[in-house]
């Protein structure tokens, strides 16, 4: 998610530091949709994602006076959302299979999709991915984390993170190709939301 700043947002952040409830609500409205989508892609559960959203905003508003660089609010909030999402998925015991590592050559095979494909459908298919692969794809491709950071956050090796990421891309590509070929939208039986 790109984060834009303007004077209005900065003044809202300053008011939030003083505990202004109206400013908190306006800042929440500004970020709730983006943060909810980050959370739901990681948890794949609407109810859990809403809990994450609530906890993250409470933490952010409680600790906002510690935030020195006000322009970094969006990134800071997103890190809180991501960390909280990982915590709740760990509680749900997401299993990260220590899959057989692929060689660098295999990992470099390009995974391509039709550029005209709807982002809404991509979002849908990301949620159909298995839990571990989905989290790694979201953290790497959408949130810009490095494989080493992902490994550290999820408690897996860097090479597992790389391999799982490659497989997630392949699965995503396959689901998109299947829909293109058959016209049917793939729904994973275990998908929660």
């Amino acid at each position: 998610m790109e984060i834009h700043h303007n004077d209005n947002e900065l003044s809202l952040i300053r008011l939030c530091k003083k505990g202004d409830a109206k400013a908190q609500y306006r800042l929440y409205k500004l970020y709730c949709k983006g943060m909810f989508n980050v959370a739901i892609r990681l948890t794949n559960d609407k109810s859990l994602a809403e809990d994450v959203l609530q906890d993250a905003f409470v933490k952010a508003f409680t600790e906002i006076d510690k935030l020195q660089n006000e322009k970094a609010f969006g990134g800071w909030l997103k890190r809180i959302v991501i960390n909280r999402s990982i915590d709740v998925t760990r509680k749900e015991k997401t299993f990260y299979a220590e899959v057989e590592s692929l060689g660098n050559n295999e990992l470099e095979i390009a995974v391509e999709i039709d550029s005209e494909f709807s982002p809404e459908r991509i979002h849908h298919y990301i949620k159909q991915l298995p839990d571990g692969a989905r989290e790694i794809l979201v953290l790497r491709a959408l949130e810009g984390y490095k494989h080493a950071e992902i490994g550290e956050k999820l408690g897996i090796s860097e090479s597992t993170a790389k391999t799982q990421f490659f497989r997630a891309k392949q699965l995503l590509e396959k689901m998109i190709q299947d829909e293109t070929r058959t016209g049917k939208i793939f729904e994973r039986a275990t998908a929660k939301a």
Partner: peptide, 17 residues
């Protein structure tokens, strides 16, 4: 795929809480 996801990042935020 990665380039697509990067370019369409904002458009992926389709769900509402």
């Amino acid at each position: 795929l990665e380039k697509y996801l990067k370019e369409q990042r904002l458009k992926l935020d389709v769900e509402e809480s």
